[in-house]
Each structure stands twice: as C-alpha cells, then as structure tokens.
Design a protein around this nucleic acid. Structure first.
Length: 1012
RNA sequence: GGGCCCGUAGCUUAGACCGGCUGGAGCGCCCGGCUGAUAACCGGGAGGUCCGGAGUUCAAAUCUCCGCGGGCCCA
C-alpha cells in the first residue's frame, strides 16, 4: 500500500474506461499519432543500412479498386516477417511499395466507366486517349491503399514505389523478353488457347484458373449418317455427343477409342446406331428398354468409316475430313464413346487435326459472333447460337437426344463471360522446355505449408504447360517484337536498341506504350525493310513476375550493392498465387538466371466469415478491411490471424477476433494498467537490465520469460507467428494470473522495500521484453507498453520499440527448469487447498490456523528455500504451513470436526493435504475485520476516491463486529487510509450517506465516510 | 471426372510426422468465491461417438483403406 505520505502521483492519460475494444482503439490512435509525429516508420525502414541483406519484394496489387479482405491477410504476414528481420538487424531490400498497373483489370474498369461493350469502341475512341484513361484509372485508389497499410501498421516505402507502367520498369521487362527469345524460350505458334470473346484476347492458364464455376450447358447426342462402302442397306448412324452445339458447324471428324468395344444396336425406323458399349447403360438405364444389339465391334473396326457432317456443305469436304479417327483421349466415362472433333475449338481436337491434316474451320469473329459463313446464326453470340442450331438439327432428324449437363466451366476472371477454347496465333513462353529446371529450382524452396511444394504447385510445374503470353489488347507492356517482311523477327531489349532501329531520335519523354510504340517507323537493320510490330501486349502477370529485378531498372542500372538475381528471402501471398505470382516469378527467374526466385514461401488460405462460410459479394458477408480495423483494432485483427491456422481456410470476423486476438491484448493491457497505476505512485524507474531477484516467484517469472524469448525468436525465424503468439499468450496468462496475483501485496508495502523493488524491477523488465517480443505481431500494443514502461511516454524524441533490436536471448542461467517444475506442483497444491476450503465451507477471507502438506518431494521444496511457507500462508490465508514427514502426517486427525483432508487416490500422485477448518475466536475476529475493510473499500470506490485519498469514517456496529473493529482498529485505518475513525454502537441518526450492510456474519453494520 | 488439403468441446486450438499415462489448454456457458487490475482475478461443474465405417495392432485421435462434409485447384 502506498503510504499516506506518498506525494500524489502525476496524472497521465489512462487507458482505463470503456470496453476493451474501445481501449484498444484509442490506444492505437495514440500510437499512430506518436509514430506520425516522430517519423517512426521511415526511421525504422532506414535502419541497418550496412546490415546483412534480407531480400523482399512486395507483390504489387492493382490499385484500381479498394483493398479487400484478401489483401489484409498477406500483408499481416509480410509485416510480421519483415519487422522481425528488421529488428534482428537485417537490411530489408527492398521496402519499396509497388503497383501493378497494366492489364485487363484496368482496361475493363475504363471500358465500364464509358459504358462500352466491345473492343471496337476503344479504337473509335482512340487508343492514345484510352491509354491515358487507363493510366489515370489505375492509381485512383492509391490513397485508400496507403491509409489501409498505415492503419494495419504495414510499413513500406510508399513515397518511392515502383509502377509496372513506368517506362524504366518496362525497359527491364523488354530486356528479359529479349533474353527469353535469344534462349529460344519465346516464340509464336497457332494453338488452342482459352479466349475471352468479350475482351477479345487469349488468357493464360493461370488466369483461367481463377474463373471456374458451375454452369449448365446443353448436352446433345447427334446421329450422323454413315456414308460410303461401309454403310448398311438400312441406314447406319454414329451417335456422337457434345456439350458445345455452337462448334458443330466446325466438325471435321469423329474420334473413337480403338481399344474400346462398340455396339451396333437397333434404332428407330429400322436404322442401326453405333455407340460405345459402356454408353449403352447410360442411355438406357432400364434394361427392358435397351435396344437389341445387332453386333459388337472392336473400336479399330470403325476406323476409316465416313459420315455426313451435322451441317453438310458448310465446310469444304477434303479427302481427310469426315472420317472416324482413333484417339486415346476418348473415354468411356462420358458421352457415347464417339467424340465430335472441331480442331478450332479444343486442345485435343487441334492436336488430332494437326496429325490428320484436317485443317481448321472457325466461323466466329474475334468478338465471339458468328460470321456470315453460317447464315442462320450470323451476328449471334456464340453461346446464343446453341438454341437455333439445335432446333435446326432437330428438324433435320440429326439431333437424337437432348438434355442439360451441369459441370464447372471457365469464365473470364474479369468480365465474367464464358470463355471458349480457340485456335489462335499467340506468343508463348515455352515453359515446357524449362520443366526440369523449374522442378529443380522448386526443390530448393521452403514452402509453408509444405504440401504445396510437391502437391499443388509441383504438380502444376510437372504438367509443363506453355505460357500463352500475348494479349490482343492495348494497355500493357507491348511485345517488343517486330516483323521483317523478309521473314524474321527483330526483338528489342532496350530503348537504346529501339532508337537505333528508328530513323530519328525517340520522342522525349518516351512512352513505350501503345499506340506510341507503333507510331515509330522502324527499319530492319539487315534488310532495310520497314518493320511491323507484332500487335500484342503481354500478360500483366509477366510484369509482376519481373518485379524483383525490374523494380531496380536492372540490368540497365547496376548500382545495387547486392545481387538482384539472388532469390528473395521471403514472399507471402494467398494460395491462389500458386498459379499467379509464385508461378510467374519462378518461370522468369529460372529462365533468366537459372535460380529459384525465392527461398521461403508463406501461403495462406482464404478467410471465412464468423459462421465459417465463404465470403462472397452475393452473400453480403464480405467485410471491408479498413472498417474492420476501425471497429476491432489492428492488433486484435492481426493477432487473430497469427493465432489461427491461416494455411487453411479460417474464420475471420468480429466475433473470432474478439475471442482470439482481443483476448490476449486485454489481459496484457490490464497488467500494464496495474503497473502504471502503481508506478505512478511509487515512481520507480523501469529496469532496463536483467534483474537478479532472490524471491523464487520472481526467478520463476524470469525463467519463463527467458523461455518465451527463445520460443518467439525461433518461431519468427521460421516465419511461424502462431508459435510465437501462443507462447506469448501463455506468458501473459502466467504473469497475470499467478505472478501478479501473488505479488500484489508487495506493491502495497510502505516505502520502497526490497521485495517491492524486486517486484517493480521484474515486472517492468518483463513488460519491456514482452513489448519487444510482440512488436512484429502487435506493433501498436508493443509501442504502448514500451512507451508506458520506459518512461516519458510518447514524448518528443522518445525512441520507439520498433527502432530497437529484437530482445536477444537472456543468459542461460536465467532459465531454471527445476524451479518451473516445482512451481507447477505448487500451483496444483494451491488448487487442492482451495477445493478443501470450499469443502469446509469457509470463505477465503476467513483466516485459518493450520495447513499441513506431506509428500512434497525435495525437488519441489528445494528451489523455494524458505519462501514457500509464507507464500502459501498469504495465498491461502492460513497462519501456519507445515511440511511434516509421512509418519507425522498420519497423526493428523481424520477428517471431521477439526480437519478437512485430501489424500491422492491412486493412480494420481501429489501431496496429502490437511487444513484445519475451525477458526479460533482470534482468527474469527480477524476475519470479521477483513469483512469490514472490504466494505469500506467498496464504498471508497463507489465514491470515486483514488487509492491515495484519505478518509474520515463513522462506523456503527455491535457485538463481535464492534469487537473486531476495536481489536484491529490500526490495521483497518492503515489499509483504508483512514485519518479519523469513529465507532459507535446502535443505529445512526437518519442521515445522508449512511451505507447499511446487514449480512456480515449475521450482524448489521453501517458506515459513513467522507474524504479528508 | 481427377488432384491437393482440412475435419479434436459452442469457439480458437495442443497432441498426429515417431501408436501407449484418465485427449490437454484458453475463451464461452452454469454454480460458487474474490474485490486497492474489476468487461480483471480464483475454485468447481457441465460439455468430446477425436467426422463415419472397416482394417493393421496387445494397444489407434495418431498408421492404412473406403465413405461423408468443407476448402482450394485442374480437366
């Protein structure tokens, strides 16, 4: 207890009042103001210019929309990793923010803003003006993004970001494309690629991957009349299945599996049908409805049969077309076992077409509408043609069965229209040639979670698919490849080379975007012919995949004192980036440098809502990350991520944050508040060096602290915030619920006694350490604790916890495992005794005479020296604690009037305990005195008195109660800071402010107190 | 249709790789206590078919297989 003579503490802003949530919010506000005032973020980013290099690159988001919840998770993880390494003395290269500026997302936004529906309208509007609109649109939301990062405490250098649309960035990209070309990894081909007719451009597989969803398509089975010598007298038909009627006009063949068995069955009007044997039961589930089988055919017997196409006369018949062909992709699982082949519209179809020299037939224009080649559907959107075509086929008797088919199908990730697979001229990165190198480099990467390495990501690499790079669009890095009429390509790798091909100097400043790049007149250096650029831009994912070197304008600028080709030490993004950024980084780094692009990949799953449901716009359960942090606080939000298993999908919402992240902080801030209120009175400076206390309780806490320091550092070294957060959570619990509870009386002692001093030192030292340990996880709370404990809180020139090193391991001697073990036994003992007290029906406030404990081993007693008995006396409110041997313990009277006894029942171990259950009159009066004290304290509190306020007190009591007050008058006066205590019998005169208690051990008790 | 991952109390999770004490903890809930941290703190209690089934084994939350549910990815 602070003595009455202690000068009144200076007041400082309190964290008290309001809900824990609102306390956290105002705390974070205070901390943010401090950081802003003292420029802490930029000072922190500038730390350790000569430290060992830690390579990092921010995966650039596209800032043409507000940040959503999916941007919060990776940033929380990145920040954790970067803060820890920074505090460990590394130089982070680079903390540059980045913005992804090109690509369909931006173009689509601009198109929407104009209300356009087709690509033609861009040309009409003018490509230069369109590009300018894109440039303006892409950074519309940059301010919100900065605000978002600021609120989260995600510190990057936002004053010096890289933009993938900066000419210097694009020049580095050009350089890399030239490298790829020279290595034979970039070339052009006619291949089937996923194509969005609305956007009029092909997409890469990793883009397609983002747009699969369930849809219903027609399922039609045609009967195609067999022609030529193998035709029977009654007609024979091939039953052919498809889900894309709009491709039927392009049919050039029918494929079968040579190994499968086929059946010739009786059909309508005496005709016979050919279908795969496995298909029979699917088409005729009821056995009695099944048609008679005329004969069985081996698949190979069908080879070479000819048939009449669904739309005769549309496609020119050549000697190779309209045959039955063998193909190994034909399966028995679906359809009839006879597959419609339209080489323009399918990967398998195209390859078969090449093999058999079928050619292609594509009656659809770039915008997805039928040309006049098919008059009945001219001008129709390809999907809309299905119905018309099916009706016609039905009318001609070609359509045999018709139903619907539910399956997942790719839609454009940006405009949400169905994609088509279509043969086009496209530039490819020949990733299949790199397959082995990609796998080898991936093998060097640490993946978290580990299963991705050889699972999802590794499998994808093993497929070795080529990367369709070119886009028939406008806003992107133009493909730097020019075509010479003499039949070769000129690939440009720098602006300087471009200037050499140009007959005049490049315009200043030079913008390499379309349309400007196409307005340059270039001449082939070898043939003096006019060059024409391949009219494409590249996949925007190539830009971001080049960021690790292009952000430094490498290799044009070589000033960096580190190797930009070296792998990044750490990247963190969502799981979908296994097909996105993680993939493009790997391909580009492998192709250019032969090295993996990163050492450690941290991959998180998606956030679900509080009910565990997927967040989606249509459900309206998507929360805005900024609003979320304004509501719940940044640190609780961050901690709830760190405490969860974020490698899988995990719940993430107000409720979850309150139950996980906020919980830990509330307890921690409560400990801080306790420290603060007392420190304000006693004015003991914080211990900045490791204290060397005698008290086992203090040594125990420091031992636990030492363990936590090591656990946290190890966990963050491995980028595993959950291990760090749980270990801190445990320590905070231990401080709060055991050390602090046990230490409270020391803080009330008069003057700065050695035990009190020790308590202050240990607590302040521990809090400062915890501030450092938790800094990478909860930067706001860390700062609050640091400022409050280290003194001169938030003052000008105060240093920040984020400018200090991560707490180094404490000396090994600080750890005392035997003491930790002994302490947990004592904790169990305390629980046992409390149970006995309850059994005895004696309230905790009533002192008891004797506690007898037998069977505690020397390992438990030893570490405590002679501290154990006093500690237990105080904690359990008993006057004596004895540790007799077993023989002596046996003499303790059996359970009954005088004692309550606990003996462990096998197999459980532990000490035997006996507690005397009847207080003597002496003790009884002491207990009553404590009841009185408690009621005075309650009243003090109700009157809003501070703990240093003195009071004058009138009491009215009789009998035992009066005797207890008389007997313990000094003690009561001291505990309650009473300057004047008057005790009277009977009842007081009716007067204001008299508080009545009539439940004190059956007697009535009245008091009135005033400040003074 | 195929692949990868996940499923432990109402919630967050430990234990699983390497099978073996009575499946541990925190929150929440109920009962009681404490009251100079008070939306803090203490004691007790209820709450678990460890998703289901089969197998291996003396022994399975843990290993194997088959399902079911969820998530992600691919065709």
């Amino acid at each position: 207890m602070a003595s009455a003579s202690t000068p009144t503490a200076p007041t400082s802003p309190s964290t008290k009042g309001g809900t824990p949530q609102s306390q956290v919010l105002s705390m974070e506000q205070r901390v943010m103001e401090f950081w802003g005032r003292e420029n802490v973020p930029s000072r922190s980013l500038a730390l350790h210019p000569d430290g060992p290099v830690f390579r990092f690159t921010e995966g650039p988001p596209t800032a043409n929309g507000r940040p959503h919840i999916g941007h919060l998770l990776p940033r929380a993880l990145k920040d954790m990793g970067l803060r820890h390494r920074r505090m460990k003395g590394y130089r982070i290269v680079t903390t540059m923010a980045g913005w992804d500026c090109h690509g369909l997302p931006v173009e689509v936004e601009v198109e929407k803003s104009h209300g356009w529906t087709s690509k033609k309208q861009i040309v009409e509007y003018g490509v230069a003006a369109f590009a300018e609109d894109c440039r303006k649109s892409v950074l519309t939301h940059v301010e919100v993004w900065k605000q978002f990062s600021h609120r989260l405490g995600f510190w990057l250098d936002y004053g010096n970001p890289y933009h993938t649309m900066d000419p210097w960035f694009m020049e580095s990209v050009w350089w890399s494309l030239q490298q790829l070309y020279q290595k034979g990894l970039l070339d052009r081909g006619h291949y089937v690629v996923p194509y969005c007719p609305r956007c009029e451009t092909p997409l890469a597989t990793h883009e397609v991957a983002q747009g699969y969803r369930e849809t219903t398509d027609p399922s039609v089975t045609l009967r195609l009349r067999v022609t030529g010598k193998d035709a029977g007298a009654p007609e024979t038909y091939l039953l052919v299945w498809t889900t894309t009627p709009w491709t039927l006009a392009s049919n050039l063949a029918v494929a079968i599996s040579p190994k499968m068995d086929y059946l010739l069955v009786e059909g309508e009007e005496g005709a016979s049908y050919v279908l795969g044997e496995p298909a029979l039961a699917r088409y005729f589930p009821q056995e009695h409805e099944r048609p008679r089988v005329v004969r069985r055919l081996k698949g190979e017997e069908l080879l070479g049969w000819t048939y009449e196409p669904p739309f005769p006369g549309v496609v020119e018949a050549t000697p190779t077309r309209f045959h039955v062909l063998g193909a190994d992709f034909v399966t028995a699982e679906e359809g009839t076992g006879l597959v419609h082949i339209a080489p323009s519209f399918g990967v398998d179809d195209f390859q078969l077409g090449e093999r058999e020299h079928l050619g292609v037939y594509d009656p659809i224009d770039p915008s997805g509408r039928f040309t006049s080649a098919l008059p009945q559907v001219t001008g129709k959107w390809f999907k809309d043609a299905d119905k018309v075509l099916m009706e016609e086929l039905h009318a001609r008797g070609v359509l045999w069965r018709r139903s619907t088919y539910k399956h997942t199908y790719p839609f454009c990730w940006r405009c949400d229209r169905p994609l088509m697979y279509r043969a086009l001229d496209t530039w490819f990165v020949r990733t299949h040639k790199l397959r082995e190198a990609l796998l080898a480099n991936n093998a060097k990467v640490v993946w978290d979670p580990g299963h991705l390495k050889d699972g999802r990501f590794g499998n994808f690499l093993a497929e070795g698919k080529d990367w369709a790079l070119s886009r028939n669009r406008y806003w992107g890095t133009p493909l730097p490849i020019w075509n010479c009429p003499k039949g070769h390509y000129v690939v440009v790798g720098s602006f300087e080379e471009l200037a050499r091909l140009h007959d005049a100097p490049l315009p200043e400043p030079f913008d390499p975007h379309r349309p400007f790049v196409d307005e340059l007149a270039l001449t082939c250096p070898d043939h003096r012919e006019k060059l024409t650029r391949e009219p494409y831009v590249i996949d925007t994912w190539y830009d971001s995949g080049s960021a690790p070197f292009a952000q430094f304008h490498w290799p044009f600028e070589q000033g960096t004192p580190f190797d930009v080709r070296a792998p990044l030490d750490f990247v963190a993004e969502a799981i979908d980036q296994t097909r996105g950024w993680f993939y493009t980084l790997l391909v580009i780094s492998t192709a250019l440098f032969g090295r993996p692009p990163y050492r450690h990949v941290l991959c998180h799953g998606h956030g679900l809502d509080d009910q565990g449901k997927k967040m989606s716009k249509s459900k309206g359960n998507v929360s805005d990350p900024l609003q979320l942090m304004e509501r719940m606080g940044s640190d609780p939000t961050r901690l709830s991520i760190y405490l969860s298993d974020y490698t899988e999908s995990f719940r993430f919402g107000d409720l979850t944050i309150r139950q996980t992240g906020l919980r830990l902080l509330t307890t921690l801030l409560n400990v801080l508040e306790f420290y603060r209120t007392n420190q304000a009175v006693d004015q003991v400076p914080a211990a900045t060096t490791l204290p060397t206390p005698q008290d086992p309780l203090d040594r125990w806490l420091l031992s636990r602290l030492a363990a936590t320091v090591e656990e946290c550092d190890r966990a963050l070294e491995d980028f595993e915030p959950r291990r760090a957060a749980s270990s801190l959570e445990r320590l905070v619990q231990e401080i709060s619920t055991w050390w602090l509870r046990r230490s409270r009386p020391r803080f009330w002692e008069d003057g700065l006694t050695p035990p009190k001093r020790s308590a202050y030192d240990v607590l302040s030292f521990t809090l400062l350490q915890v501030a450092g340990l938790i800094a990478p996880l909860a930067p706001f709370t860390a700062e609050e604790i640091f400022q409050r404990v280290s003194g001169g809180p938030f003052g000008p020139g105060s240093t920040s916890v984020h400018l200090l090193p991560y707490p180094p391991a404490l000396p090994a001697s600080t750890r005392d495992p035997s003491l930790e073990g002994a302490m947990s036994e004592v904790l169990e003992l305390v629980e046992t005794v409390r149970r006995l007290r309850m059994e005895a029906g004696v309230r905790a406030r009533m002192p008891l005479e004797d506690l007898v404990v037998a069977g505690l081993p020397q390992e438990t007693l030893g570490p405590f020296g002679d501290h154990l008995a006093p500690m237990l006396q105080e904690e359990l409110n008993v006057k004596r604690v004895g540790f007799p041997g077993p023989e002596e313990f046996a003499k303790v009277p059996r359970p009954g009037e005088e004692w309550v006894v606990h003996r462990p029942t096998p197999p459980s171990k532990g000490p035997s305990v006996a507690l005397s259950r009847r207080p003597s009159r002496e003790l009884y009066l002491e207990g009553l005195a404590r009841e009185v004290v408690r009621r005075i304290q309650i009243t003090r509190k109700e009157l809003g008195l501070v703990i240093t306020d003195t009071i004058r007190l009138d009491l009215w009591a009789d009998g035992d109660l009066a005797e207890a007050v008389e007997r313990h008058r000094d003690r009561i006066s001291k505990d309650c800071l009473i300057s004047e205590l008057r005790l009277s019998g009977g009842t007081p005169p009716e007067a204001m402010g008299v508080r009545v208690w009539d439940d004190v051990e059956g007697s009535t008790f009245r008091l009135r107190l005033v400040n003074g």
